[in-house]
C-alpha cells in the first residue's frame, strides 16, 4: 500500500478553487435551465486548475451548484476523463481498442512501460509522466494513437515515441 495520506485527509485549505474558476462556474450555472448542468463543465475547470479533482473541491462545488458532494462524487467517478488522484505533468493515455490493437498498440504500451520504468496506471518518480490505457479515442485511421494531456499523437512507432518524449520537458 502507498504510504502517502489519503486525499480525504488533506487540509482543505490546500485546494481552494481559484476566483476565476468560481466566477466561471457561477456564470455557467446561471446560463443553463438547471444549475446542475454546469457540473461536468465545472469539473473540467477544476481539473484544469489542479490537474485532478481533489476531494475538498467537491464540497466547494456542491455549495456553488446547490447540490450534495455525494451526487457530485457519483458523477465524478462515472466519467473516465476525471482524475481521482494526481497525475504526472504529462498524462499519457494510450488507446487499447481494436484498431489500435490491430496495428500494434500493445507494442507501444510495452515500449513505454520499459522506457519510463513504470507500469500502466503509475506515475514516474519525478512526477513527470503518468501512463494510462484508454478505450477508443476516435482516431482509428491514424492508429496506434495516444493522447498526452489534451493533444493527440498518431501513427505511433518506437522512433516516434522517442521523438515525442524528447520534446516533453
Amino acid at each position: 500500500m502507498s504510504a502517502s495520506p489519503s486525499p480525504y485527509l488533506t487540509q482543505e485549505s490546500e485546494y481552494n478553487l481559484s476566483e476565476d474558476v468560481v466566477t466561471k462556474i457561477t456564470e455557467m450555472a446561471a446560463s443553463f435551465p438547471e444549475k446542475n448542468s454546469a457540473l461536468i463543465p465545472a469539473l473540467h475547470l477544476i481539473q484544469d486548475q489542479f490537474g485532478w479533482v481533489p476531494p475538498p473541491t467537491i464540497k466547494q462545488l456542491a455549495q456553488l451548484l446547490k447540490t450534495t458532494p455525494n451526487k457530485i462524487y457519483g458523477v465524478l467517478t462515472f466519467y473516465t476523463m476525471f482524475n481521482l488522484k494526481p497525475v504526472g505533468k504529462y498524462h499519457i493515455q494510450i488507446c487499447r481498442n481494436v484498431s489500435c490493437s490491430l496495428l500494434g498498440a500493445k507494442h507501444i504500451i510495452d515500449y513505454l512501460t520499459k522506457k519510463l520504468h513504470i507500469q500502466v496506471g503509475e506515475t514516474t518518480a519525478d512526477g513527470k509522466f503518468t501512463l494510462t490505457l484508454v478505450e477508443c479515442l476516435g482516431a482509428c485511421g491514424m492508429a496506434p494513437v495516444m493522447m498526452i494531456n489534451d493533444k493527440y499523437y498518431e501513427n505511433l512507432d518506437e522512433k516516434k515515441v522517442d521523438q515525442i518524449l524528447k520534446t516533453l520537458k
Binding site: 446542475n36 454546469a38 461536468i40 469539473l43
Partner: peptide
C-alpha cells in the same frame, strides 16, 4: 467527459443535465 454509453440519446441528455 469520457463515457461510451453517453452516445445513447438519453444517456447524453442525463450528461448535459450534469
Amino acid at each position: 467527459a469520457g463515457a461510451y454509453v453517453v452516445g445513447d440519446e438519453t444517456g447524453l441528455m442525463n450528461s448535459i443535465e450534469g
